[in-house]
């Protein structure tokens, strides 16, 4: 029996994307990574996994961008790196993530989060605290006693690093929530830096900001990578192209392609990456 045109079309669509055997592996191997994601799958409950079997190394002192259309699991992957996804009940995962030699899922999450800081989509300074206290909030809230001089030094250093010092040095004891959105976000980055983590995770840190504030934060991230390793989720492709050294492209919970940003943006290895980058979906 002859199949109809529609059936033929469906058949074609149902076929998986053919990966050219001649092509290199779309997942680049990173030499001596600071963080090693090993066959990680994360589920928010049930058998449905939001990310599936993701393996990747994160290069030290580089900016790694995670891109992909909404719902592809990029935020889940980022949160799984410092176990913030566990805030939701019923999460479970397979595989693991190694920080150096240590399995982070066997670490105390409280200690882990001191080594891997996080900055969120919306600026979230602590509303009851002054700018000064916000910067050293990690120490204050964890009951770590510091001398006045040490505190002053940490506050000044962190605020200088994010370029906020000259803007707020006369208002350190005002509430952080009176700053502009971009300033608040830089304050949040300073708060993460002040705690001297090894890695900073940023979950779409500029999506709530205007272009000028965004540019400032991008410049800042590029500057910061000499001291920290940065992992950034963004659905802004040009942002990834501008500032990242490595890029991941995720689609439907799968890590489709991972490699040097320049390489990926000029010669993507996977057809889906190419289609995303050229705006065919997303």
């Amino acid at each position: 029996m002859e199949s109809t045109v529609l059936e033929k079309e469906l058949e074609v669509k149902a076929q998986p994307y053919k990966v050219n055997k001649m092509m290199q592996n779309p997942i680049e191997k990173i030499e001596s990574p600071i963080l090693n994601i090993d066959k990680l799958s994360v589920s928010y409950g049930g058998d449905k996994y939001s990310i599936n079997d993701v393996s990747a190394g994160i290069a030290k002192n580089k900016i790694t961008a995670i891109m992909g259309p909404s719902g592809c699991g990029k935020s889940t992957l980022l949160r799984a790196i410092n176990r913030m996804h566990e805030l939701y009940p019923d999460t479970h995962n397979k595989g693991s993530v190694y920080l150096g030699e240590e399995d982070i899922y066997k670490m105390n999450p409280i200690l882990l989060r001191r080594k891997i800081g996080m900055v969120f989509q919306r600026p979230n300074p602590f509303p009851t605290m002054s700018i000064y206290d916000n910067v050293i909030a990690g120490y204050l809230l964890n009951g770590i006693k510091l001398k006045r001089k040490e505190k002053d030094a940490i506050v000044e250093k962190s605020l200088r690093e994010v370029g906020l010092w000259s803007e707020v040095k006369d208002a350190l004891h005002n509430k952080g929530t009176f700053l502009s959105g971009g300033q608040q976000q830089r304050l949040c980055i300073a708060r993460a830096l002040a705690y001297t983590p090894e890695i900073i995770l940023l979950d779409e840190p500029t999506s709530a900001l205007d272009p000028i504030a965004t540019a400032k934060i991008e410049d800042l991230l590029v500057k910061l990578k000499k001291d920290f390793t940065i992992v950034l989720v963004t659905h802004n492709m040009s942002q990834a192209a501008r500032i990242s050294d490595y890029s991941m492209f995720m689609y439907l919970g799968e890590l489709v392609e991972y490699g040097k940003t320049k390489q990926m943006f000029t010669m993507p290895k996977d057809k889906r990456t190419e289609e995303y980058l050229t705006g065919k979906f997303g």
Binding site: R113, M118, R122, F126, T128, A137, L141, N142, R191, Y195
Partner: peptide, 29 residues
């Protein structure tokens, strides 16, 4: 109180009980 505030504290490695008592409760005072 937005969840992002709780996330902010937890992501700094602040234990849950301290997050509630020293960040969330004062914000709702």
């Amino acid at each position: 109180i937005p969840d992002t505030l709780k996330e902010a504290a937890l992501s700094l490695g602040v234990p849950y009980h301290k997050t509630m008592l020293r960040v969330i409760l004062p914000s709702g005072i």
